[in-house]
Design a protein around this nucleic acid. Sequence first.
DNA 1: AAACGTCGTACGACAATGTCGAACGCGAGG
DNA 2: CCTCGCGTTCGACATTGTCGTACGACGTTT
Lengths: 251, 251
Amino acid sequence: MSEGRIIQSVARALNILELFESSRDLSVTEIASRLDLSKSTAFGLINTLAHKGYLEQNPRDSRYSLGLKVLRLGGAVQRHNIIASRAKPFMEKLVQEFSETVHLTVERNGMVVYIDKIRGDKAVFIQSAIGAENPMYCTAVGKCLLAYMPEAKLERLLSKMQPLERRGPNTITDIAELRQELQAIRERGISIDDEEHVPGLMCIAAPIRNHDGEVVAAISISGAKAGISSKLVGRISEKVAWTAQQISGEM
Amino acid sequence: MSEGRIIQSVARALNILELFESSRDLSVTEIASRLDLSKSTAFGLINTLAHKGYLEQNPRDSRYSLGLKVLRLGGAVQRHNIIASRAKPFMEKLVQEFSETVHLTVERNGMVVYIDKIRGDKAVFIQSAIGAENPMYCTAVGKCLLAYMPEAKLERLLSKMQPLERRGPNTITDIAELRQELQAIRERGISIDDEEHVPGLMCIAAPIRNHDGEVVAAISISGAKAGISSKLVGRISEKVAWTAQQISGEM
DNA sequence: AAACGTCGTACGACAATGTCGAACGCGAGG
DNA sequence: CCTCGCGTTCGACATTGTCGTACGACGTTT
């Protein structure tokens, strides 16, 4: 965890922005107390963020909320991210075919990060937001990314993620069992989360490779387990794997 | 343009992030020179942004690009923004019906800001990104927002937006003519951009109101003019207006 | 109505902190 | 093997962010 030079005021400003991930609007006083800053310090930072459009002040109650400028940055990521831009049209086709929610994910710091998401008509309430993080061991996409990871990295991540907390009825809580599962995923080319992360939820994922053959992302379909017959699992698996290969071919 | 207290280092850090809207990756030296900072100052800011996940360093060439953390913020905006979250399902239905691109926009500082976008199958290349800005006088959504604006605000914006630059074959370049157009929009409840912004492109927009009846957003469908017969214009207009009303009813 | 509490914002003084130039270690290219 | 340019580190200075205090505005309470 080397740090190097950290500019305090910048870090604080970013902390302020992050507060708004869980709150729609905040007052200067609330922000100051949550981050242990003096009101005037908080105000200076907030005012700077607002001046640049990253926060906006509601004229009614003079509270602050996120500004639209942050959308610009998010859009820039999507645009510049080779995976996301290439995968988008394929994701849309998947949504149309199965009417279930489709996710695109990568690994970052041992977590699954959702870089794009398209909801389907059947839209079970899946509270995964773009940019959100989830654990790897209990999600289809996470296990998929683990399965194709360089061994050294896998070992490092595995040793850091214990214990495997139970999240759903079928969560794999034993490391040895997880290793077997990863092996099975490599053999099938498909990763399935059968109520391991969220009760009632089923996900099917497949790996996306860059032109060097390294797995750099995973794509998945998620839906209510009740609505997915075992026959459908086969059809979805096939199509997800096929889609992942198509996307890989474009990289 | 009152400023108040601006924290220099924070403003500089935000400037750095904004550089990445037009560049996929940048080196420390490039950033320093573009913003007229010393290399070490730039490095401190960059390092802070990277440490917090808003920038990432490519281990290959040690250049920096936007980090996935910015997606979190963008997602938070979408989630907290009442208009965006309410409108999403309706937008998806519009896309399914017409297979054309659907936009959701608001006005900010006299510009149209795109807060959501869903591409349709026919997906003409429309380079509008989420968070991007466009002028109001030559876009369907912009004219729509102008048409239902409080008079004082309208006058202020009109006086600031002259001259009306020609963008497409039918761009309205005369203020008086624009006022007539706004009147027509109010009468029809529908705003149409017929190659006024981009040659070959046609957009149809309708206003979204909050529960006080104020117009707070506009929704639109965009497509190649060649692919939209005059009969289709009627059908689309009707459906866009209907959708906008439905969304308004949810606010 | 007047007193109170609390809010966002402004001010000013101190020292903590961001800034800068110079220098280091490293890798690529000649 | 030397050189160039890169990202990064270091240390000293003074700029700048920080904090307590205070002001004016608003809403609520008494």
